[in-house]
Design a protein around this nucleic acid. Structure first.
Lengths: 134, 134
DNA sequence: CCGCATCCTATGGGATACTG
DNA sequence: CAGTATCCCATAGGATGCGG
């Protein structure tokens, strides 16, 4: 049997293993803000404050943190242009591009199935609330 | 212009709007544990403790919470069999099935691109560490 | 077997203010 | 413009024990 270190440097990586590095990656990309950022970059490079404006509700701190982590993971690149004031553009890397379809699917699913989810929630709550009367 | 309540009950839902209900859904499905659970249910119904064993590292509390939320959102169903002791099976609903491909893509991406991510991280850290010497 | 309740700590993430 | 630093609180989530 594979012990605690199972999956480390060995194929195939198994995301169901607690200590597998894939868990860290999953934690990064299965994240609301990361999904929105990656999806927003699909059409091309975007500047920091532009992302900040487009992804409504994200704080500058979280945007900054998330961008840095995604850059470290090789999913996106950061380009600095020595203009005055400085301009910084974020763009998907080739590796990042291999993820965007899946990520976009998640984001779009939410938009397309919102009605069904809302209905399910209402039904669930009605059932749960009604049970008190039994 | 659409005010604060933009997107509520109106099409198209826009996941980039801060107050949009799609954000709640995105928060739910763009979650490490939810992804693993939904992916694990692809092949058929699974019992509670079976999920707990398969998804290594998940606590019973988090599993329970996540299952309940996913059930409320209509993504999966809960079936109780009056055996002794009781048996409970969780399964994807038709709505949940429309999500699993996207979710599986995310989970599998992590497994397939782990090497590239690891390499990117090493390169990034080497660069960051080296800068101290400039 | 399937959970819920409680306790407790670590972390996520918002607000605000300051730097190159 | 593009961040970094600090404060600070809400929540995620692990551990443990009990109940149906």
């Amino acid at each position: 049997m594979r012990g605690d270190d199972s999956c480390r440097l060995a194929w195939p990586f198994d995301v169901y293993e607690a200590q597998c590095p894939t868990r860290m990656v999953l934690d990064r990309i299965a994240d609301k803000w990361a999904v929105l950022i990656l999806d927003r970059l699909r059409e091309g490079p975007v500047r920091f404050n532009h992302l900040r404006r487009d992804i409504k509700g994200i704080s500058q701190k979280v945007l900054s943190q998330t961008l840095k982590k995604l850059e470290r993971d090789g999913l996106l690149s950061r380009a600095v242009f020595p203009t005055v004031p400085v301009t910084v553009e974020y763009a998907l890397t080739p590796l990042g591009r291999t993820l965007t379809d899946a990520v976009a699917a998640i984001a779009h699913w939410a938009e397309h199935n919102m009605d069904a989810v809302l209905a399910a929630q209402a039904a669930y709550d009605a059932r749960a609330g009604g049970e008190a009367g039994l």
